[in-house]
Design a binder for these strands. Sequence first.
DNA 1: TTACAATATCCTAATATTATAATATAATAG
DNA 2: CTATTATATTATAATATTAGGATATTGTAA
Lengths: 100, 100
Amino acid sequence: MISIEKIKRIDFEKEGQVFKALGNPLRLKMVSLLMNDECCVTDITNTLGISQSTSSQHLNILKNSGIVSPKRYGTKICYAIENEEVKQLILMLIEKYNKE
Amino acid sequence: MISIEKIKRIDFEKEGQVFKALGNPLRLKMVSLLMNDECCVTDITNTLGISQSTSSQHLNILKNSGIVSPKRYGTKICYAIENEEVKQLILMLIEKYNKE
DNA sequence: TTACAATATCCTAATATTATAATATAATAG
DNA sequence: CTATTATATTATAATATTAGGATATTGTAA
């Protein structure tokens, strides 16, 4: 359990950002797509059926909240999930909502 | 790891809601406040220093996304975290950002 | 250098969130 | 019943988010 003292030290603005970034269906879809393997912007764009501009903007939001990180391969840029904790969060939610 | 097939079956709108609800510093603060024990609207309002209306509206968002649930005691209504999974999500993030 | 492919940024309109004031409801006491 | 306390709802104005077109940048090949 969290103590009152610990709660007082939390940076809610910063922590909220991670949830906020994941709180958009398109971005959540992107992250889920990246769960298996890294993927370049064009492929993400085509898979989700959105404009390249939109794709790039959402990836930027995910990058800024520390969820994904880019890696350049020549002219292509591949995005991958940055940290394991985020993967765990997604997995937990998927477990929660997709019990068969 | 998640399979492509499993990803296709995910309801991103619905799952995104939980993250979205937690993606607001005030709501995250509310949830953290409720981690220790249930709390009535007036106390939440006063603790966070916000208006009663704002408080009520945010609690409603948290309720609709299945994070908290109300319980009436006479004229007072106390909110509590709905389930352990949500507690786990919060705890994971707090661990992540408050390593000392 | 030029041409091209991949990605990012800028701009704008549509839409969604947010906070507050005012009002409504619900439970209880008298 | 009325009055009071606690909470919810409604309306609205300010702000933020979103999507896509146009444009800019970056890297590579010729």
